[in-house]
């Protein structure tokens, strides 16, 4: 079984929103139609996005840390949004685990959005159907694209490579290794949704220096100092060369 997913490294995300704009560009130009916006340049802009980058401040001043947090549909392995859909418009693909909405079947009842604890689904206010991240299902299998580009648009755009894409069920994939080796975790594990997308935690490179490392008891300078010094007339190593 394949379960495609994103793994997002919070340690390197700089909050540049490149994934957001790239996602919007790709998905608003696709076969499935545009992602509508209202007042994009006005006072109160709003629109449909699959991916948002949020910013949180952790800690209390002055010991704070800014965390940029990209959020999109997590393609849960046990997605609560799917069984509630009355029309079958929301479904999880057996072959690759991507959760999709069939825009031609959706009646726009919002029930699936209520059933997603992550707020990953957004109704398109003009087309009146539910939208969410498709993992760029119209890119990743496209034989017309060079193999290296068969990745979600957000992954292609990320300048810091904070977004990894792959099969989390394949233990040897890049994403599985990242989750395993770098402490990948799931969001809101308390609801048992088993998100396929994972996040890699912030890591700090802290150098621990102990006092004895600054003043080493076996400092060779001092050790040398305690050795008996050769008398001035005795042959030294340098004298060897002068022999």
């Amino acid at each position: 079984m394949t379960q495609l997913a994103l793994v997002i490294d919070l340690n390197v995300c700089v909050g540049c929103h490149a994934c957001v704009t790239s996602c919007k560009q790709w998905n608003t130009s696709g076969e499935a139609g545009y992602l509508s916006d209202d007042n994009p340049y006005g006072a109160d802009p709003t629109g449909t996005f699959f991916n948002r980058v949020q910013t949180f401040e952790v800690g209390e001043f002055p010991k704070t840390e800014t965390v940029h947090f990209p959020k999109s549909c997590l393609h849960c392995e046990d997605p609560p949004c799917v069984p509630v859909c009355p029309t079958g418009a929301s479904y999880k693909r057996a072959e690759d685990g991507i959760v999709l909405v069939d825009y031609d079947k959706c009646i726009g009842c919002n029930y699936c959005a209520w059933a997603c604890p992550y707020g990953a689904r957004e109704i398109d206010e003009h087309q009146k159907v539910m939208k969410k991240c498709t993992l760029c299902v119209d890119r990743i299998y496209d034989q017309a694209l060079p193999e290296a580009e068969r990745k979600p648009a957000c992954v292609m755009a990320c300048p810091t490579s904070a977004r990894l894409f792959g099969d989390v069920h394949d233990p040897e994939s890049e994403v599985s290794r990242a989750i395993r080796d770098r402490g990948g975790y799931a969001l809101m594990p308390e609801w048992g949704t088993q998100p396929a997308n994972h996040y890699l935690p912030r890591r700090k490179a802290v150098a621990e220096i102990h006092p004895d490392e600054l003043t080493r008891h076996d400092n060779p300078l001092k050790v040398d100092g305690q050795l008996p010094r050769p008398a001035p007339g005795e042959p030294a190593l340098d004298d060897v060369t002068s022999w």
């Binding site: 109160d44 709003t46 629109g47 948002r52 949020q54 949180f56 401040e57 957004e122 109704i123």
Partner: peptide, 20 residues
């Protein structure tokens, strides 16, 4: 967001206006 800290505040939600 999976960060173990008692004090977390949101600074931005990724959109200047409202959203769905």
């Amino acid at each position: 967001i999976g960060i173990k800290h008692p004090k977390i505040v949101q600074i931005a939600q990724g959109a200047m206006g409202g959203s769905f």
